[in-house]
Simulated assay, not measured.
Amino acid sequence: MRYSYLSALSVLIVVLLIAVPLVANSFWLVQIGAQTFIYGIIALGLTLLAGCGGMVSLAQMTVAGFAGYLVSILGINSVNLGLDWPWPMVVLSAITVATVFGTLIGLLSVRTDGIYTIMITLAIATGFFYFTRQNYSIFNGFTGYSGIKAPVVAGIDLREPAYFYYLSLMMAAVSFFSIAYLVRSNFGIALQGLRDNARRMEALGFHVVAHRILTYSIASILAAVGGVLMVWMNGRIDSASIGVGPTIDILVMAIIGGLGHPIGAFIGALIFTLSDNFAINLIDHERFNTVIGSVFLAIVLFSPDGVIGWWRCWFKIGGASD
């Protein structure tokens, strides 16, 4: 009964997500829907790194921002007009180079663990933030780039809210199912073993460093995809997009949703996005951090496994049987 209930619920959620453009306006499609999917994709990489691999990286938004900057520079923008490459080359180059960038971050981080991994990745994120803010020849300094637009593909204008919503939904679905499969694969099981006892796994013949670097690469691909969608959605990118605040926000989303569960990244992103957009209706928007901080504190204190943990607890209390 339990599995049939969950299957029916999953089908209902999928149907609702597909039907949203039929009833929602552009605000709900882009500012809530698409933004949730994009944040979720970026946070999903952190879920893989931290939840499965035990590596808490604060560089996910940095990689996403790097991909966004590449889209601005290689494509078209309103500042220096960009290089005007065809959009497929822009997207492929942005994802590829950003993935290499994220892998290099992994090379610097994989031999550490715990607080040291957090500090190294935070230092990289902070350094990149200040570099983009102060560099005008490549990143256009404090102003950044604006006028970036999603392409028109086969006559479909991805700048239209409904089409952009479906694009973000599709990429989120592909990302989610890919990571859900990866977590259950031999690689994912080995990664969880490395998280729990790296020395024992190394004694069994597993290459600890190689597994961890590959995990950083996979997480970087997710961040890069999210970065491309993010710059298309906002139409601009600047150093503020990759500051310490947005960097920490990704960690908050992953923890709120449930760091050990792929779907938790999207649940956390939804809660964060709703709070960000509607906190002004409860208190002054400048106090948004108070709202999200309170939610974060409640999660950490009462359900270390995030909202997923609450759901599982409620499900057991509800008396659903197998």
Rank of each mutant, 00 (worst) to 15 (best):
F129R: 10
F129V: 07
L83W: 15
V90F: 04
Y145G: 05
T99Q: 03
D157R: 06
F129I: 08
W87V: 15
G147I: 09
A98F: 05
G114D: 05
L122C: 04
F128T: 06
I118T: 08
F129K: 07
V100T: 01
M89V: 14
D84I: 10
P161L: 10
V152C: 02
W87L: 09
I105H: 01
F129T: 14
S137A: 13
A150V: 02
T103C: 02
I156C: 07
L158A: 03
G147C: 12
L92N: 08
T112W: 08
F101L: 02
S146W: 05
L92H: 09
S146E: 13
F129C: 04
N135W: 03
G127T: 13
D84V: 11
P86V: 07
V97Y: 05
V91Y: 00
T121Y: 02
S109F: 10
Y116I: 15
V100D: 00
T143H: 10
G102T: 03
G147E: 10
N135H: 04
M89F: 15
S146P: 03
N135A: 03
V152N: 08
L158Y: 02
L108Y: 12
L108S: 13
Y136Q: 06
F139G: 00
P88N: 11
V153M: 14
F128A: 04
D84M: 14
Y116P: 04
I156T: 12
V97A: 08
V100L: 11
D157G: 05
F142R: 12
R111F: 10
T117F: 08
S137P: 01
R159L: 07
P161N: 11
W87G: 05
P88V: 09
V91G: 01
S109V: 13
A123P: 06
F142P: 02
G155A: 08
L83C: 14
E160Y: 04
D84A: 15
L122N: 04
T96W: 06
E160F: 04
G141A: 10
A123W: 08
K149Q: 10
G147Y: 12
L104Q: 01
I105E: 00
D157M: 07
G141Y: 13
M119H: 07
Y136A: 04
G106L: 11
A94I: 13
I118V: 13
I156E: 04
T143N: 14
L108Q: 10
I138R: 08
V90M: 03
P86M: 08
N135R: 06
L104F: 14
D84Q: 15
A123K: 13
S137W: 09
A94M: 12
S146N: 13
R159Q: 15
D157Q: 09
T99H: 02
Y145W: 07
A94R: 06
V100Y: 00
Y130F: 14
S109T: 15
L104H: 01
V110N: 00
P86G: 09
F129G: 03
Y145V: 06
A154E: 11
T143E: 14
S109I: 12
F131Y: 14
F128P: 04
I138K: 10
M119A: 11
F139N: 00
